[in-house]
Write a protein that binds this DNA or RNA. Structure first.
Lengths: 288, 288
DNA sequence: CGCAAAATGAAAGAAAAATAACATTTGACA
DNA sequence: TGTCAAATGTTATTTTTCTTTCATTTTGCG
């Protein structure tokens, strides 16, 4: 009994190719079926073995048989192939060398995270986030629990690209920074919230507060975030479930890195200047 | 008995729109689900009600309920909507958002970072790092400058997988934690250093100090790190040059996430227990 | 023409998914 | 703090889908 694996040894592309190859040498009914499948690859995922059979006018059994003949163990496995295919992110064929067996799936998922984040860079939210970060007078950043540190780093890094960035610690700092100062134009501040499951109660409240005081608000969070849309001016999602004990923070890291870059790109001279200054200062203090 | 029609009165686009509209006003679990669906429209056709439920972490019933609330009578009808949508037009199953032209190369590089990190998971250093983190009695973690926050997060997250983890702030805390206590077995401590270019002078010194006092030392750093090999017991490299204004921290994030996972895998019962406790405590404190 | 081998489908059984009815939990509000 | 309604999950039931086994049909070929 070859092929114990519950996961297919085949890729969808290979399957399709095998199908094309096989058509001429197939028995009549199966050939009809194969033909139909080839012409309807788009909707293949929506079909069930039965529905396919019905559409083509063959019996259900024939469907199963054809699949098995092509090295695909039944409808279930076909669905699996499709899923792998469409979750994008071909895990770079040779790159999985030297990856621990159990981690292969995680790796695929992490790559999926990366592409998912990049795909947002053309969206309207990204656009808005970028210009808010570049043009607002002051930027406040905050993050909670297991991503607080990342948020702090974001503040540090963003400070190298532009000025007036500060980390806000609502709990510890009592939001003193937000005490309304006479003369501050409403609409010139922007708040960045970084939050992941389990979402902090505080995050939502701070976002609301910002809203009420006419501060813009950008939320960077994971794919389950249910509260941000509707409150925030821009929302960026970084998938986090990749099969690990704790949610992955790769997506958040990436999104924030890209945002820093976007801001730097918006003020090329200023950011270059700042970077140089920073290095000079650090050297003076003998930090490195 | 309302709704005789066996064919939906709704189009898929309408459904999606309804979904977007509804998210903010939906109960928590359903909102999470909705959010997930919106971000995974691509593969929606391949999902089954059950699989969706599993991925999001809600019960199957909730899936059915959400759909019905949106005017779509169950999974079957949703599949029907999708079929209509895709059989009609759209040659490609999904209208994928693009990646901004200028970022394509960066994306390639970031994916390269991910695979590079994963490839280390089979190496000897990884092995050593994993067992040190799992078996040492006490773990100290520190990080500098632009990755200090990530290091702090690592400490927080590692604490969910095992005990006796603390963040060490050599500068602020004067290394008081390391004042030698009579009775502490040498060799039972492990230090994790996270450092990237430009390397902190401090990092090297702390590593040396650890060495001298027979503390194990793991260094997580970027591809340029020149000093760690030879001093550290295990070195993990996370590439960082991906063409951005500042170095990317994706690799570091990933490496640290994977390490946490490895530790959790080494003590499955303990880590599960800890996670539950943490959730209970957080709930008690009304953090979320 | 007749026979064997392949192809096909029917029916029954097993597995999975969707649904419905009921129980528990949660959260808002007095 | 207690109460009620909404939200969510559990369990049981029904429906659908997939697969296996076996009988029937078709096809190739001497």
């Amino acid at each position: 009994m070859p092929g114990f694996a519950s996961y297919p040894q085949l890729s969808f592309d290979e399957f399709v190719e095998a199908l094309e190859q096989a058509v001429p040498s197939l028995p009549r009914q199966e050939a009809k079926l194969a033909q139909f499948v080839l012409l309807n690859l788009n909707t293949l995922g929506l079909e069930t073995g039965k529905s396919l059979a019905a559409r083509v006018g063959v019996s259900e059994v024939t469907v199963g048989r054809l699949l098995r003949r092509l090295g695909c163990n039944g409808m279930k496995e076909l669905k699996e192939l499709l899923r792998q295919q469409y979750t994008v992110a071909s895990p770079a064929p040779e790159a999985r060398q030297g990856v621990h067996r159990a981690l292969e799936q995680v790796m695929e998922a992490e790559i999926g995270v990366v592409t998912a984040v990049f795909q947002q860079t053309t969206g309207a939210d990204w656009e808005r986030a970028g210009s808010l970060l570049s043009q607002s007078e002051r930027i406040f950043i905050t993050g909670f629990q297991s991503v607080r540190g990342i948020a702090e780093d974001f503040a540090r890094r963003l400070s190298l690209a532009r000025g007036n960035v500060s980390y806000l610690s609502p709990h510890d700092g009592m939001l003193a920074e937000w005490a309304r100062i006479e003369g501050t134009t409403p609409g010139s501040d922007c708040l960045v919230l970084v939050d992941v499951v389990p979402y902090a109660r505080e995050a939502i409240e701070v976002a609301r507060l910002a809203r009420e005081e006419e501060r813009a608000c950008i939320v960077v969070s994971d794919e389950y975030c249910h509260w941000s849309r509707g409150i925030a001016d821009a929302v960026i999602y970084a998938p986090s479930r990749t099969g690990l004990f704790l949610e992955s923070t790769v997506g958040i890291s990436l999104a924030l890195s890209l945002l820093v870059d976007a801001v730097a790109a918006a003020h090329p001279e200023e950011s270059r200047e700042r970077l140089l200054q920073w290095k000079a200062h650090a050297k003076r203090l003998r930090i490195f």
